[in-house]
Amino acid sequence: MTPSDEQAHGVSQNRALLPLMVVATLALGWILVPFYGAIMWGAIIALLFMPVHRRLLARYKWQRTPTALLTMALILVVLILPFALLMAALAQEVSHFYTLVQSGEVNPTRYFRDVFNALPDWVGALLDRFGLVNFSALQRRVSAALAQGSQFLATQALGIGQLTVEFITSLFISLYLAFFLLRDGESLARTLRNAVPLAPEHKRELISKFTTVIRATVKGNLLVAVIQGALGGLAFWVLGVGGALLWAVLMAFLSLLPAIGAGLVWLPVALYFFVTGGIWQGIALCAWGVLVIGLVDNLLRPILVGKDTRMPDYVVMITTLGGMVVFGINGFVIGPAIAAMFMAVWHIYATTRADTGA
């Protein structure tokens, strides 16, 4: 075989290898889809705690396996145990609330009726014209919606609080993967860098952008959510609103939505205080929500998320909302990460074209 024939044979082998690689990658992705959330959070946990792992490795000069095990023990104490305790307490509170709705002690229609009675006459007439004050129909709809919603929350919270098989499986996969990524992450990253057919400076830019966005999004959004939820729950507890823990967790969850977030919970409660005669409670809750809870969002989120990711606030907000619509709760990480990679890839493309004069 001549050198030209060998070269042609090598080219044909490379052409056949590419489709096989694509098919194998898609097949692997297909079988991992059911666990994509657990795999994603395992990678995120390893990424967040990698600096701790490196400090322990440099300080104690241990082998990678004992250091990774010590890091995993810290993760269990700092992250997993508090989360499990919170979910167990939440499960009890949600179950209690569901029982109150089922027994009729919590009657949403009564609250709507109190609000309607406090409205000006012209507002009541306008609502009546559009058929929006049929309290019998409203009671059926709201009661059914609250019953379904509270039952769903109770099921989910109880599932976590009582450690169901699905939750244990996902948690095991996340922690198992996090351990190996902590132990072997650097060698795996080196292998991936060598496999990506890009210039070294472009690979460094993409990897740096991706890791920065993931860390900033998770740490920033979760920290803001925890602070806002805790502040909102504290205000509800002081004002005597029932189920303060439940509302605190709900506010923390909604705080993942930039700009609107916790206001979807505390603002209706403040309005209810106003229309039912609790003027000072309504004023206090509005002041606390705007000046304290809102300040946390407006002050900390741009610093923790926007500054590190170097993305405009509106891009972070839109991609967070879009990501949560498409991917659910995991979308608050996936959305900004996709946006960051989009911007980085287009920046590399524009720079390359400018350098080549195309």
Score class of each variant (00 low, 15 high):
residue 2 T to V: 04
residue 3 P to Q: 06
residue 3 P to V: 06
residue 3 P to E: 03
residue 8 A to Q: 03
residue 9 H to C: 05
residue 14 N to S: 12
residue 17 L to W: 08
residue 17 L to E: 11
residue 18 L to S: 07
residue 19 P to N: 07
residue 19 P to E: 10
residue 21 M to P: 11
residue 22 V to I: 15
residue 23 V to K: 09
residue 27 A to M: 08
residue 29 G to K: 01
residue 31 I to M: 09
residue 36 Y to C: 14
residue 37 G to E: 12
residue 43 A to C: 08
residue 44 I to L: 10
residue 45 I to K: 01
residue 46 A to M: 02
residue 46 A to Q: 05
residue 48 L to G: 02
residue 53 H to C: 10
residue 56 L to P: 04
residue 58 A to E: 12
residue 59 R to Y: 02
residue 59 R to W: 04
residue 60 Y to L: 15
residue 60 Y to E: 15
residue 65 T to E: 06
residue 70 L to Y: 00
residue 70 L to M: 13
residue 72 M to F: 06
residue 72 M to N: 11
residue 77 V to K: 01
residue 78 V to P: 02
residue 80 I to D: 01
residue 80 I to W: 12
residue 84 A to D: 07
residue 86 L to H: 04
residue 87 M to P: 03
residue 92 Q to M: 08
residue 95 S to D: 09
residue 99 T to W: 13
residue 99 T to P: 00
residue 100 L to Y: 06
residue 106 V to D: 05
residue 110 R to T: 15
residue 116 F to W: 15
residue 116 F to V: 09
residue 121 D to P: 04
residue 124 G to K: 15
residue 126 L to V: 11
residue 131 G to E: 01
residue 132 L to S: 07
residue 133 V to K: 12
residue 134 N to R: 06
residue 134 N to D: 14
residue 141 R to G: 15
residue 150 S to K: 02
residue 157 A to T: 15
residue 157 A to N: 08
residue 158 L to F: 05
residue 159 G to L: 01
residue 168 I to N: 10
residue 174 S to H: 00
residue 175 L to K: 01
residue 179 F to E: 03
residue 181 L to F: 04
residue 188 L to R: 02
residue 191 T to W: 13
residue 194 N to M: 05
residue 195 A to F: 07
residue 199 A to M: 11
residue 199 A to L: 13
residue 206 L to K: 05
residue 206 L to Y: 08
residue 207 I to V: 14
residue 210 F to E: 04
residue 211 T to K: 08
residue 216 A to Q: 02
residue 217 T to V: 11
residue 221 N to S: 10
residue 223 L to K: 09
residue 226 V to A: 15
residue 230 A to F: 03
residue 231 L to F: 00
residue 237 W to K: 12
residue 251 M to W: 00
residue 255 S to E: 14
residue 257 L to I: 10
residue 262 A to T: 11
residue 264 L to W: 15
residue 265 V to A: 07
residue 268 P to M: 03
residue 276 T to Y: 11
residue 277 G to I: 05
residue 278 G to F: 10
residue 293 I to G: 00
residue 293 I to M: 02
residue 294 G to S: 00
residue 294 G to R: 00
residue 299 L to W: 14
residue 300 L to F: 05
residue 312 P to V: 02
residue 313 D to F: 10
residue 316 V to M: 13
residue 316 V to H: 10
residue 319 T to N: 09
residue 324 M to W: 06
residue 325 V to C: 04
residue 327 F to R: 03
residue 334 I to M: 06
residue 344 A to S: 10
residue 344 A to C: 09
residue 345 V to W: 13
residue 347 H to D: 09
residue 347 H to V: 07
residue 348 I to F: 03
residue 352 T to W: 14
residue 352 T to C: 04
residue 354 A to S: 10
